[in-house]
Simulated scan of single mutants.
Amino acid sequence: MDLETLKYPIGRFVTPQSASAQQRTRLINDIRQLPTLVEIAVQNLDEHQLQTPYRPDGWTIAQVVHHLVDSHMNALTRFKLALTEYNPVIKPYDEAAWAALPDVSNTPVNVSITLLHALHTRWSNLLEALTDEQYERTFVHPESKQTFKLWQTLASYSWHGLHHLTHIVNLKESKGW
């Protein structure tokens, strides 16, 4: 498998032109189901397997699981900021630096999976309650200087979860685990 496919096993994210209520329901279901799918994907892996990178110079499976929690905690915060402030500027974070922090290396993945379940329950409950108008709310990302609507962000994080889940599943398949 080439490096691009290893990095982006489901392809690079492409922002959709719109998201109907039916499309948003599918995306919300992706968010709601991700913790269970991740839990199933890692449930029988031993410590050596969890410490295996999904690609050369990539994160380990454990780092991917912990990253999903870190990233999606930030995502929920971005949604809440956009819902309670007018076009707020969000706070970016250094994903690689977060993945290298001691809580990632010293915490079992089941702790992050438990947190992922709780986080995604809260997030999905919020997402299901939003109106069409609320999905049009925005925030600004200061690094890209772009403004994002919440429905675009929902699509992005649906993709993000499936993207990292596929990293885990593909590594397991390639290793015969």
Rank of each mutant, 00 (worst) to 15 (best):
D30Q: 15
P35D: 09
E39W: 00
E47F: 00
D30T: 13
V42T: 13
S20G: 06
L45M: 07
T52F: 10
I31E: 06
R26I: 11
D30S: 14
Q49M: 08
T52W: 07
D30G: 05
A21S: 15
T25G: 01
P53Y: 06
E47V: 04
V42Q: 04
R32I: 00
H48M: 07
I31D: 02
Q51K: 05
Q49Y: 03
T25N: 09
A21N: 09
D30V: 04
Q22M: 07
Q23V: 09
L34W: 03
V38C: 07
I28N: 08
R26D: 14
I28Y: 10
E47Q: 08
Q49A: 11
L27F: 06
I31L: 07
Q23M: 10
S20P: 04
Q23S: 11
R32E: 13
R26C: 03
R26A: 13
I28M: 09
R32C: 05
Q22F: 01
A21E: 15
I28V: 15
N44Q: 12
T36H: 12
Q23P: 03
S20D: 08
Q22T: 12
N29H: 13
P35Y: 04
L50C: 06
Q33M: 14
P53G: 03
A41N: 04
T36S: 13
T52P: 03
A19F: 02
T25I: 13
P53S: 07
P53N: 04
H48T: 10
L45K: 03
I28D: 05
T25P: 00
L34C: 12
Q51L: 14
A41P: 05
Q43Y: 00
R32V: 00
N44E: 12
L37G: 08
I28H: 10
L37P: 05
S20W: 03
R24Q: 14
V42F: 02
Q43I: 10
A19K: 00
T25A: 15
Q43C: 10
L37V: 00
V42W: 03
R24S: 09
L34Y: 05
D30P: 08
L37C: 05
I40R: 12
I31A: 06
R32G: 02
T36C: 05
N29R: 15
L50P: 02
L45N: 04
D30W: 06
L27C: 06
Q49C: 07
N44C: 03
D46E: 11
E47A: 07
I28E: 09
N29E: 14
H48S: 10
Q23A: 12
T52C: 12
Q23W: 00
A19W: 00
E47P: 01
Q33V: 06
Q51A: 13
Q23E: 15
L50E: 06
Q49T: 11
L45F: 00
D30E: 14
I40W: 08
L37Y: 11
R24H: 08
Q22H: 10
T52L: 13
V38Y: 03
L34Q: 10
L34M: 14
T36W: 06
Q23C: 00
E39T: 07
A19C: 09
S20C: 09
E39R: 06
T52M: 12
